[in-house]
Design a protein around this nucleic acid. Structure first.
Lengths: 206, 206
DNA sequence: ACGATATGAATGAATG
DNA sequence: CATTCATTCATATCGT
């Protein structure tokens, strides 16, 4: 993987310690664990998942939750970023067919669809999850290719009763309505809440 | 801060001199040469280039390649970092209770030759949402130069690790036949922002 | 050699 | 989907 080996802190805590004075979310942002990354990449490369739908995201996040705290938006952003970065990378070094010879263009060659981790019985008691060998349901089931996902943050209900007492699945099953939107040209693009005029004051020089 | 630049370091792979290992870029990371830095700064300050587009990056990197090994991502990162750091520094001082005309606090003003913003970031108004009356007082609350103090407005939840704790992967929703997500544009998001309240404290009511 | 600072690189999050 | 911002890691270089 990348030479940047970030530590893999056992981000277990949720941050809110009841009796604690400290509600200090160690990290404000999600720090994916190696296992999570592994699965995500597996989905991305081996399964061709690039823009998972809400349902898929829910599934993925649920599965990844076994390896650490994760939320739907994390998965969502991960895929978006991963895809965007790949494209961007390509954009930069889209150098014209000039002399080869080391003209690497320059970025890490990460397009391998290889999936290591034979998952041999390691001494560790890690929860080795079958990667592409198992019958994962998280794979994309039809939604191939690209997908424009315009997220819309409308503070509405949508509150999934999580932790109800066993049913973690969180039946977010009120999807029998919006899903009917098979209008590809009607780009969801709903009114984004967006922050009101929060422009940078471009105070560069002076 | 930038004490001085090393003069043309043997930044050529293969010449790993010390170490003994070879075939490996002695320097894992790009070490810009003085000429490269000079040009980059020139573009940054004299030309107001702060976030070059992919095409520009290609051009720049191509030009800088004359002075040393450089790649697209280097240019990209350079500008990103430069801008970010300058802003970071400014943020700490910008309006800090500084007495006296210490207009600057201390760090050197780089090579602020001049500055101009050819691209007047005039991003029009706000798309949609204008209908609602202007009951909006949420404007910035005294945000001077920058308005990004990590002010969350949407999600900022805290772990949704429901009590499930084990039976994950349940049926997370029974799509009524799953949406025919065959359409590339149909991922209307609506789940991000889920605000779970798992603060089921006995007695509740505080 | 070690600490401090500077800076390249990477990535999560957010916006347009 | 493209672009940008913020944060953090990693390493290079310099100071002591």
């Amino acid at each position: 993987m990348e030479p940047q080996q970030q530590n893999q802190p056992p981000n277990e805590d949720g941050g809110s310690g009841k009796g604690g004075f400290l509600c200090r979310p160690s990290s404000t942002r999600w720090t994916p664990t190696t296992d999570q990354i592994r699965i995500l990449k597996d989905l991305y490369y081996n399964n061709g998942v690039r823009s998972p739908s809400a349902e898929q995201i829910q599934r993925i996040s649920a599965r990844l939750r076994q390896y650490g705290k994760i939320e739907g938006k994390n998965v969502f952003y991960w895929f978006q970023n991963h895809k965007a970065r790949e494209r961007q990378k390509k954009r930069f070094n889209t150098d014209v067919p000039m002399q080869r010879g080391a003209g690497n263009g320059g970025w890490k060659p990460e397009e391998s669809i290889h999936n290591k981790y034979p998952m041999a019985n390691i001494t560790s008691g890690f929860p080795a999850s079958s990667s592409s060998s198992g019958v994962i349901s998280v794979g994309q089931m039809g939604n191939y290719g690209y997908g424009s996902v315009t997220m819309e943050k409308s503070f509405r209900d949508c509150s999934i009763s999580a932790g109800g007492g066993g049913g973690v699945g969180g039946s977010i099953g009120h999807n029998c309505g919006w899903v009917g939107a098979n209008d590809p040209y009607s780009s969801s693009y709903t009114f984004l809440d967006k922050r009101l005029s929060m422009e940078e004051n471009s105070g560069g020089g002076d």
